[in-house]
Design a protein around this nucleic acid. Structure first.
Length: 423
RNA sequence: GGUGAGGUGGGUGAGCGGCUCAAACCAGUAGUUUGCUAAACUGCCGUACGGGUUAAACUGUACCGAGGGUUCGAAUCCCUCCCUCACCGCCA
């Protein structure tokens, strides 16, 4: 969440930035400022009274020791009175604080200055394209047909076992998926990311700290019996490893990579978007996460973008990089680059990675701080990105690399996928 | 799941109603001293939210797993929950 101090220092600037994200309730900024002023006032009153009570309690102890019972009893009566007047302040204070918090979490992160204005995916800024689109035969098949032809994925069987959006990978399909995961993890590991296998369910505190709650409540699967959320991305458990942690500056940056299945309810999706592997309820993803010094986060964002780009280049897939506009960005992000690969048979771009700088939006909730060079406590910055999401990569490899009776393997997979996909 | 023992500052660990604004030791840090390595000694050494200041100093409140309660006063007593460890049971 945002820091109240920032709202207070530059309320107009905050509103202007929120407007770029098409956030409508700008009056909340003023409400929060007023609530914080009230909170301070109440706390001062509370502290002063409590201080008096504490001092008197000590005096009572001394009077009792000196057997000065009458005076002690007199003081007890005064303390009782003060305590009574403390109660309403305490209650009011709790109310104000709750309201302040509840309101503050409604504000999304502020987009950085370089975020283009806009309302939808159409307004995203295409900043780079790379890789050549393949020339496919006229009768080239979409990946769901290829999956059937080579017996790689069984969508119908997944529907029987669970429901739509839960495909079953079989034989070479499963092996190719595993090969890709392995390759991605190794690629990330070589760049200094420490490998993590996190829990695939998290508690509400964790979902809250990375910003999925309250924003994405309805998009996560929830296990009512134990009050756990199935992770929509390993960003959640991995970033939360640093919840309530104070770091030393020289421990930064912290670089982690994790493979996990991701679970998303995707309520409201339909049509060609959900065909085949395009959009699933369960999919696999390898994620990269960094926790960094505040001043360095944009430098690191560029580095992570280059890292993901290198991975796509190595797979020889046609890709483009978009800088997301205010309206298309995530709630917690300050700047996001999306990577899309061109699905040659479907003739459409598919998002395969989203790399974001959250600045201190997550760490303010996480309470993840570090002592800077001056010894001052400072919120760290978090970043994460997919490196990469599996299904759409798989879809593109199948479609783009198809020949009449085989699928050609990208060069880096030679060491990971032994065998061939052919008829 | 059962039974028992516990959860105290970065770590170990004392305290079990007011003499604790949480002892001591270790680690960390600054300094003093001694040819070097090293040792000894001295000081400092939590977080959050307030007040205060240009910034500090200084100062108020809260925090001893979490939340309630008893009391003038709670790390300390009571209740509920969570977690850890040990043993037993079950199990990949």
């Amino acid at each position: 969440m945002l820091q109240v101090s920032v709202l207070k220092q530059k309320p107009d600037w905050v509103k202007e930035r929120l407007a770029v994200k098409n956030f409508k309730q700008l009056e909340l900024v003023d409400e929060i400022i007023a609530l914080d002023d009230e909170r301070k006032k109440l706390q001062s009153e509370f502290d002063a009274l409590q201080s008096k009570i504490n001092a008197s309690s000590k005096d009572i102890g001394k009077l009792m020791a000196a057997k000065n019972i009458n005076e002690a009893n007199g003081l007890k009566a005064s303390v009782a009175e003060w305590k009574a007047s403390l109660e309403p302040i305490k209650q009011q204070s709790a109310e104000v604080e709750k309201k302040l918090n509840d309101t503050l979490v409604l504000l999304p992160n502020l987009p950085s200055e370089s975020v283009p204005k806009g309302f939808s995916a159409d307004d995203n800024l295409n900043i780079k394209e790379g890789g050549a689109k393949p020339e496919l035969a006229a009768d080239a098949l979409p990946h769901w047909e290829l999956a059937k032809k080579y017996k790689l994925i069984d969508f119908e069987l997944g529907t029987k076992i669970t429901g739509s959006g839960f495909p079953i990978y079989t034989g070479n399909g499963a092996r190719l998926q595993r090969a890709l995961i392995q390759y991605f993890l190794d690629y990330n590991g070589e760049a200094g990311y420490k490998e993590i296998i996190p829990p695939f369910m998290v508690n509400a505190d964790s979902a809250f700290a990375t910003g999925q709650l309250p924003d994405k409540e309805g998009q996560m699967y929830f296990v009512t019996e134990d009050q756990f959320y199935l992770i929509p991305t390993s960003e959640v458990p991995v970033t939360n490893m640093y919840r309530d942690v104070i770091l030393k500056q020289d421990e930064l940056p912290i670089k982690m990579t994790a493979y996990s299945p991701c679970f998303r309810r995707e309520a409201g999706s339909y049509g060609k978007d959900v065909r085949g592997l395009n959009r699933l309820h369960q999919f696999e993803k390898v994620e990269i996460v960094q926790i960094v010094q505040a001043e360095k986060s944009y430098e690191v964002l560029d580095e992570m973008v280059a890292h993901v780009e290198g991975l796509l280049q190595s797979l020889q897939l046609p890709y483009r990089i978009l800088r997301l506009c205010g309206g298309d960005m995530g709630f917690a992000s300050a700047l996001t680059y999306d990577f899309e690969v061109f699905s040659a048979a479907q003739k459409r771009w598919l998002e395969v990675s989203s790399v974001s700088n959250f600045e201190s939006y997550q760490t303010n909730r996480l309470k993840c701080r570090y002592k800077n060079a001056e010894g001052k406590m400072q919120l760290a910055h978090t970043l994460n990105g997919s490196s990469l999401a599996l299904p759409r990569i798989l879809a593109c490899i199948l479609e783009n690399n198809q020949t009449e009776n085989s699928i050609k393997m990208p060069a880096p997979l030679k060491d990971y996928f032994k065998g061939e996909i052919n008829q």
